[in-house]
Structures are given as C-alpha cells and as structure tokens.
C-alpha cells in the first residue's frame, strides 16, 4: 500500500480508534486481518531489518516464525500472539529504535516489510 494522503488519513483515524480500546478491538475482530495498520507493521519491520540486515531473508524468517502455523488469518494472528508471549516469557526481546519488542513481533513486521506476509 503506497503512502498517500488517503492512507495517512486512514492511519489517523485508526490512531483515534486506538485511543478507544473497545471500538478498536472489535474492528480487529470484524476484519479478521493480521494487522489493522500494515503501514505500522512495515515501519517497525523496516527498522528491525535495518538493525539486523542478516535477517533480510524472507524464507528463513517465514520458516522461523510460521512453521506449523495455521493458514487462516485469524488463527495465524493467534499463532503469532502466542509466539510473542513465549518470547517475552523467555526473554527473547529486541530493541528496535528504543522499543522493547518480542522478537517474533519484530520478525512478523519484518516479513510484512519484505512483502512476504500479507498484513
């Protein structure tokens, strides 16, 4: 999705939604997509890849993150969520531009940035 005025505006609307948790959460469920804001995922992923150029390999990222994962988007989200929780529990975190993220969270975003995961 190219960054244009409409998409930025949509981002802004979602940002407002983010301040209203109940409404925002139900939107995620209705849509059944992995990321509500693919642009957001791409931005995080781009930062992560800049920091870890050795991971700029979609096949390997996919293998590590999605091996054994269900294919439907809703279930896929659950799979990645679970991996994030495991990462945090195991101390597998990364610092991306100062943000402390689960490694799987950053890698999922990296896959989006590489165009290898449909957000």
């Amino acid at each position: 999705m190219p960054i244009n005025r409409r998409n930025i505006l949509r981002g802004a609307v979602l940002a407002l939604g983010a301040m209203m948790p109940g409404a925002a959460m139900s939107r995620i469920d209705d849509h059944g997509v992995l990321f509500q804001s693919p642009r957001a995922a791409r931005t995080v992923g781009t930062h992560y890849l800049a920091q870890h150029p050795e991971e700029r390999n979609a096949a390997r990222l996919r293998q590590g993150l999605l091996a054994g994962a269900p294919t439907e988007t809703g279930a896929l989200r659950g799979h990645i969520q679970a991996k994030c929780r495991q990462d945090f529990a195991a101390g597998h975190t990364v610092v991306v531009d100062g943000w402390i993220l689960a490694r799987s969270e950053a890698r999922a975003c990296a896959l989006v940035a590489l165009g290898a995961l449909v957000a």
Partner: peptide
C-alpha cells in the same frame, strides 16, 4: 503510534 497499532493487533 505505529508500535501502538502493532501491539493492539498482536
């Protein structure tokens, strides 16, 4: 804001 959106998703 971007990170906020990602974590809201995950």
């Amino acid at each position: 804001q971007e990170v906020l959106r990602v974590i809201k998703d995950l």
